[in-house]
Amino acid sequence: MSREGFVAMGERMMHGADPLARMLWRFPPYRWCVAVARRLGLTGRTAVIAIPYLWLLLFFLVPFAFVLKIALAEALIARPPYSSLIEWSEDTYLTIKLNIGNFLFLIEDDLYWKAYLNSGKIALISTLGCLLLGYPMAYAMARANPAWRNVLLMLVILPFWTSFLLRVYAWIGILKNNGLINNVLMGLGIIDQPIVMMQTDFAVYVGIVYTYLPFMILPLYANLERLDVTLLEAAADLGCRPTKVFFTITLPLSIPGIVAGCMLVFIPAVGEFVIPALLGGPDTLMIGRVLWDEFFANRDWPVASAVAIAVLLLLVVPIMLFQHFQSAEAEAGV
């Protein structure tokens, strides 16, 4: 009913627009403008493409050029705190000063190497954790009674809609020395000394698995739900045992879902800042945190930019992979 009303309203508005367009058309300067626009290839179609295109170009792609530019500048105590690459010296000569010192600094100082490797390690282990926990969940959901599926799906999505920051914060209360887990375990008499979990890599793993689990489950579920059950029946009919059916039919067919899920977890986890900052210890080095500290604590914008470029280089391959799978899915009309 309401949609019908919406349509009627839209239609009335568009009808108002038609005579207006006809009147405008009688007005020569408008006609000339349209003719010029057409000559330049500016049709309505081009305009529709251009609007989102220009926005993303300006606010997503161009900024990376500035990151590169500043990564090649020198740090200054000034506003903004970096040197200019291009200068007019003695008013006549144009000099370009490229400073690759920031990158050399990244290579020389093993803090960055450690952070780099540690981020990769933490992201990899957390991704595996998500997969091991998420796959059975997604599988069980896809095989559940259809009436239950939507409810289960909603239950997976629900945490994703509530504040990420607050959900990470909740784990502090659970993992700390006098937190929920230690209280329960000590109350039951299983341990008499609290287990130190907060400010360890373990807490970071838990935090990442917890926050990114829905990102793993959703693509897996979408894939597994589409799986034609008659394939499994056919395999069973041909004499294949259930476990073997899973490994020879279900698992290979769900690879696109697995790849999408893993990329959705791994790539952002590498650059994660909030989780190591809240749950990790001072020695939990992650590249996102290093970047944050270079920027906010040391106010060294050029080094922060150099770190960003380094992370991007690390992530180029997984991002391309993700894009590839994403567009393959889109082509398949899913």
Partner: peptide
């Protein structure tokens, strides 16, 4: 899908004003 049978059939005529 969002219009009744009547509105579906009337659509073409509405475009002619």
């Amino acid at each position: 899908p969002h219009m009744t049978v009547e509105n579906n059939v009337a659509f073409g005529l509405r475009q002619e004003g």
